[in-house]
Design a protein around this nucleic acid. Sequence first.
DNA 1: TTGACCGTTGCACCTTGGTGCAATGACTCA
DNA 2: TGAGTCATTGCACCAAGGTGCAACGGTCAA
Lengths: 201, 201
Amino acid sequence: MSNKVYLVDDEPDLRRAIERLLRAEGFKVESHGSALEFLARLPAEADGCVVMDLAMPGLDGLEAQERLVAASTRWPVVFLTGRGDIRSSVRAMKAGAVDFLTKPVKAEELIASVGLGLARVREVADLRARYAQLTPREREVMEHVIAGRLNKVIAAELGTTEQTIKVHRSRVMEKLGIRSVAALVTAAQRLGVSPAGGEAD
Amino acid sequence: MSNKVYLVDDEPDLRRAIERLLRAEGFKVESHGSALEFLARLPAEADGCVVMDLAMPGLDGLEAQERLVAASTRWPVVFLTGRGDIRSSVRAMKAGAVDFLTKPVKAEELIASVGLGLARVREVADLRARYAQLTPREREVMEHVIAGRLNKVIAAELGTTEQTIKVHRSRVMEKLGIRSVAALVTAAQRLGVSPAGGEAD
DNA sequence: TTGACCGTTGCACCTTGGTGCAATGACTCA
DNA sequence: TGAGTCATTGCACCAAGGTGCAACGGTCAA
């Protein structure tokens, strides 16, 4: 799984060329002619790497990236553009882009970047699947646990008892396949889950 | 403290201009004509923001950045260059640069980036000072704690007793001013301290 | 309506972590 | 040599976390 590339470019000729290149490398490719079209058909969970142009009619590549970031979806994005400038590349990298390549692109560079993006997705794929199994309450408790709060404090804040928190907490650990708070904290960071109400000291 | 800028550029005229600009904003400025000169007089702990040119005789700006990263010093670096290209900017940002600006630079942009870099330094300055107080043994124990290991496991691995580990552990928490394992894990990440022997699950 | 899932609570028991006090031996530095 | 730091250990006690069992009420869909 997870060898899928979402190609977003408004030029049909270039799409075809890149598609061919990526398919020859064994990637599955899904092409979109505009960022809006891509975002509209966006899978709920990141299951591949995005390869996107910068300048496109409708929604800009950087704007599309911002939306992905804002939705905390953690899609890996590789930019591939012909009229890029330093300012754009810096903005893209700040926003967490995997790479920022210029046309004409060397095949090996594109493949390497896509591979890196896919590797990032795979790293958290299993964890995401596990996290999806958590109930809303369990996620809530998790956010408090990774903030370093004691069970009884969490209980007070959520208006329940310590016993209840213990149950939720143990289910969180069980479902995520994790056995220590330390591992839970790092898992949460990989998932983009933030501690509730700031960190405790 | 920590409003210091380390300016590294081989052009004396430009150094003077930037120095004046930064000093007018209340920053302390220390200038160096080459990356090697800067690295040779490098303070042990990051106590300011680096503003560096890309192309310089001797050591390249990107190479200098790499050395800083390799030494895990976590210096914030703002690149300021006249002949930059996209490839360089992407490489710099991947290596963790705060920003990548081009000459001529707008004063407000440079000031904003330097301010951001300094903010990053200040964020961990207090923590670094505290971490510096730890004894070697305490750091060792800390690395096991953030790996999620139980006290008795740590004791076995370090060839001592659980009691001893408890003492070291409580000293770590006390010296760092931290009260939960969760906070310790995030503090360790900010400090660049890695868990011992990989993470426990 | 029945079954499944969710959130909840209580109780008992055990493990683990945290604290305070006291003490020892090794090492370095003045 | 004496002071200071570091690493170590033991003991007692308390706090917090983790587990297993049993149970209740609500929601939602088949």
